[in-house]
Design a binder for these strands. Structure first.
Length: 456
RNA sequence: GUGACCAUAGUUUAGUGGUAAAACUCCAGUUUGUGGCACUGGUAUCGAGGGUUCGAUUCCCUCUGGCCACCCCA
């Protein structure tokens, strides 16, 4: 028989294998708890949206919308037996989370809710670009958004909230960079001043920056080329170019951060990529043990986006963090996460046909009491079954053989020390329930002792 | 979209112009009802296609994929 060619996953897509799920659970639980404790509500929006949502939301000139979106023409994609939908709507897999949440905010009239409206969301996003470290075509973003409040305290609270949560994840050397981009009204003035400055030095800029000079001079600020950076270092600062109002807003944000003892790094060259940002912007990164800095997330104000997507004038601020990047970081830096519970507490072993019925009954009874219980399938010998019990890390094994079946009893074997006792089958589940509880607590106490010793 | 490096069992890696080793994992067994140890055995069209050659896993080309960097960003 010819060997059938296996199908592999798509480029830039990943499987989250059982080996990795504890990391994912830890990260997503921690992020979620962090937001819930700050009074945020959870929202989920579709993975597929109309393409024009992102045109307007992320910006039609951005690279993301221009060449990285997975878009489909629904007029062309109907199955052969179905009639094509005639509207020809172009739909896209979301490349980020904010546009969808803003759309939902408007669509459900959430402006009538008491302000500020604080929402968090998590989900897969898609960008068709070349994968590399910490960068995938399908990735998971965790995002939070606060609508309807302009007070700088909100900016500081959101940042501090994320700071706290990142620390809870155990990420060392966390660096927080902050900056302000000024308001929409300030933008022409800022662009003009920067263009004038860079125009004089144009010949010394790198090729990319020469293009940026025409398109978006702000982006020259975060160019990584050394020659550009030397020019940038004496460029006019955005903070000095913006209105007094914006400057006051920004200074107040910084004061609040000081009050909350959040260490931040004022970074005048921080310019975020998405078009919709205004005023406060920030970015979280960490220094890897051996590699360069890894960007884990960032965000900022987008005071005009709700309006631009057809909603009422609503100031807003949000952030997005890369869950994949955090998981990758925890894994490569061997950061310890809470140990996942052993999957199976009790393993039921049976020998012969008659005992099978009793064994199944025992399994049902145990599972009813929420004791995770495994059974041997496809293994006949006692030896093989015990081996299987050992492999899944069972605390106890229940042995029901022909002898036991005859007297309606079962044997409980403690897998740690091999001590066995025989109990009546009707008492089995309850007896094991207490044994498992006791053992689990013992192990937890032991774990705590170790931890306390380490802390002393 | 551009560039560098890489591609051998499930995993991590040896190796050779004459069809391949090891470790770990997995599966089966080491006689009859007791796991962890030990021992034995099993598992690879050497990424795909083409070329050079008597012969290629080994050399050359193309593709695909991985990884990393640029761009951009999470």
């Amino acid at each position: 028989m010819a060997k059938i060619q296996p199908i592999n996953r798509l480029k830039g897509f990943q499987d989250i294998t059982p080996e990795d799920t504890p990391y994912w659970d830890f990260v997503t639980d921690t992020l979620e708890t962090g937001m819930l404790s700050a009074g945020f509500d959870r929202i989920e929006t579709p993975i597929l949206e109309r393409a024009d949502l992102f045109d307007r939301g992320v910006g039609p000139d951005s690279d993301i919308v221009n060449k990285e979106m997975y878009s489909f023409d629904t007029a062309k994609m109907a199955g052969k037996d179905k009639k094509a939908t005639k509207d020809g709507t172009i739909v896209s897999l979301r490349p980020e989370l904010t546009a969808g949440v803003v759309r939902a905010y408007i669509e459900h009239g959430m402006q009538i809710l008491p302000k500020p409206v604080a929402l968090f969301t998590m989900g897969r996003c898609f960008r068709h670009e070349n994968p590399q470290a910490g960068r995938y075509r399908e990735f998971t973003q965790f995002g939070a958004e606060i609508f309807g409040e302009i007070d700088p305290l909100i900016d500081a609270l959101l940042i501090s909230n994320l700071w706290q949560t990142m620390n809870r994840l155990g990420i060392p050397n966390l660096v927080l960079n902050v900056n302000s981009l000024g308001s929409r009204e300030d933008r022409p003035k800022i662009k003009k001043a920067l263009t004038e400055y860079f125009k004089k030095k144009e010949s010394k800029l790198c090729d990319d920056c020469k293009k940026r000079l025409k398109k978006n001079p702000l982006r020259i600020l975060d160019c990584k080329e050394d020659k550009c950076q030397t020019i940038v270092s004496s460029a006019p600062a955005i903070v000095d170019l913006m209105s007094d109002d914006c400057r006051t807003h920004f200074m107040t944000v910084l004061e609040h951060l000081d009050d909350m003892e959040i260490p931040y790094n004022l970074m005048p060259t921080l310019v975020r990529g998405l078009d919709y940002y205004s005023r406060t912007v920030f970015e979280f990164s960490t220094k890897d043990d051996h590699r360069r800095t890894a960007s884990l997330g960032g965000g900022g104000r987008y005071d005009y986006l709700v309006e631009e997507l057809g909603g009422p004038e609503t100031p807003a601020i949000g952030f997005g963090v890369g869950v994949d990047r955090i998981v990758d970081f925890l894994k490569t830096n061997l950061i310890k996460i809470p140990k996942p519970k052993s999957r199976v507490s009790v393993y039921v072993v049976h020998l012969g046909e008659e005992s099978k019925k009793l064994a199944l009954g025992a399994v049902m009874a145990l599972r009813k009491l929420d004791i995770s219980t495994g059974v041997a399938i496809g293994r006949d010998t006692l030896k093989g079954q015990l081996k299987a019990a050992d492999k899944v890390g069972a605390l106890y094994t229940v042995i029901i053989g022909q002898r036991e079946a005859m007297h309606n009893v079962a044997m409980i074997r403690d897998m740690r020390d091999g001590i066995q006792e025989t109990v009546d089958i009707s008492d089995l589940a309850e007896k094991l329930y207490h044994m498992v509880k006791l053992r689990t607590r013992e192990e937890e106490d032991y774990g705590k002792k170790i931890k306390n010793k380490a802390n002393q």
